[in-house]
Amino acid sequence: MAFQDLLALVQDATNKVTALAWALFLFTWSLGWTLRGSPIPIGKLKRMGGSLVEDSVWAAFWLAVGSTVFNLIVYLVNLVTGG
């Protein structure tokens, strides 16, 4: 495997992980609210729903921050190198 293939593999994995993370965020956020709002009177379940919502929001926050920062870095590097 050439080095460029390795780079491409990592890039591909990153893209897939990002897409999967956004999808999981939506799913987890929905699931969290569903559990929290469900008419099942089990406190533990509702707390778990709240925890899932919280975690998914953090995930979305970091995904947004990451996308912004990494894109900014790529933009700046391209600006500097003229690429």
Binding site: L7, Q11, V17, A21, F27, L52, D55, S56, A59, A60
Partner: peptide, 30 residues
């Protein structure tokens, strides 16, 4: 591969690591 190639690899790996962190946050497994 030269120094720059490894730095690019390091950059991409760091991005992957970061997104993996976000992915794990997003996992619906409490």
């Amino acid at each position: 591969a030269g120094e720059v190639d490894y730095l690019i690899l390091a950059y991409r790996l760091s991005v992957l690591t970061f997104y993996l962190g976000a992915l794990i946050y997003a996992l619906p497994i409490p």
